[in-house]
């Protein structure tokens, strides 16, 4: 088992380096991608700034608190898009029968798919997220204990896994549907729209939908309430709030299993 994991890491690293070299072949695209990414982050933050300028608070959350949530969300987003955003191009890989070769090599097809290119431009998400998070941590004056530090770190990864699970499950449908563009961009939109605000402001129905149906509340909002001492506003038990990172892991394990089971539906192309 340990040997298997070490091998996967080694192969992943080799493939990712190749993906990076591929990406760097197109230098102009690379540069514009990073600039564009940073501009997009700035625009997102500006929207929140505009709302705050008018209302001072959103759902009782002050600017530094909102920045903490926003920073956590964006960092998580960057943590999954940097290594795995090629999951989004699965339609092409399936329709053009690129999967033929993924299935005839002794490496998990998931690893081969996500490393076909390394979209370095998504690093702007990660850098932007970390910067905002840094400012938020400096201005919220929280009382830090070891469990809370651990929770923050794990929650960033857990948040990445929550979003990655959704995209992985949709990618699994690609073997049957061949075209999943609208689904995955809708999911991306939902995360980018609802993920940046405290989930409680959306009213009871949406609140439950975002906890149970599409559990994006667990990505950043729930752990942020723990860090900010706001668990009082939650509609789930506090222990579950602490376990938010585990929710991400569980979701990803389930999504990955589903994805693997769908490989057998792959029909390649031609006869």
């Amino acid at each position: 088992m340990v040997e298997r994991i070490r091998r996967t890491v080694r192969v992943w690293a080799a493939l990712a380096r190749a993906g990076l070299r591929t990406e760097l072949q197109y230098r102009a695209n690379f540069a514009f991608g990073i600039l564009g990414g940073l501009a997009l982050q700035g625009a997102g933050l500006a929207v929140i700034g505009t709302i705050l300028a008018r209302f001072q608070q959103i759902g009782g959350w002050s600017l530094p608190e909102l920045m903490l949530l926003y920073g956590m969300r964006l960092t998580s987003h960057g943590l999954w898009t940097l290594p795995c955003s090629n999951l989004m191009v699965i339609d092409t890989a399936v329709r053009e029968a690129e999967f033929d070769r993924y299935l005839t090599r002794p490496v998990a097809p998931f690893v081969q798919l996500v490393t076909r290119r390394l979209p370095v431009t998504t690093i702007s998400d990660l850098l932007g997220g970390l910067a905002i998070l840094g400012v938020a941590l400096a201005t919220t004056h929280l009382h830090w204990t070891l469990p809370r530090v651990l929770l923050l770190g794990l929650a960033l990864v857990g948040g990445a896994l929550v979003e990655l699970s959704g995209q992985t499950a949709i990618a699994g449908l690609a073997f049957r549907m061949l075209s999943t563009g609208s689904l995955k961009f809708t999911l991306d939109d939902v995360f980018n729209t609802f993920g940046n605000y405290p989930t409680k402001i959306f009213g009871p129905a949406a609140r439950w939908a975002l906890t149970v149906v599409l559990p994006l509340a667990f990505a950043s909002y729930v752990p942020a309430t723990v860090l900010l001492g706001r668990t009082g506003e939650l509609w789930i038990p506090v222990w579950l709030a602490w376990a938010a990172p585990a929710v991400g892991v569980a979701l990803f394990v389930a999504a990955y299993r589903f994805w693997r089971s769908q490989l057998n539906r792959y029909a390649s192309s031609g006869h």
Binding site: A14, R21, A97, D100, R105, P106
Partner: peptide, 27 residues
């Protein structure tokens, strides 16, 4: 496996890189 119609090589990289990568994938 070799498919004449589709390459199994890394399209944007020098051939030697593909050969080294294949060696890594197959240990």
């Amino acid at each position: 496996v070799v498919f004449g119609q589709r390459s199994g090589l890394w399209w944007d990289l020098p051939l030697i890189d593909s050969l080294h990568l294949a060696a890594t994938l197959y240990d």
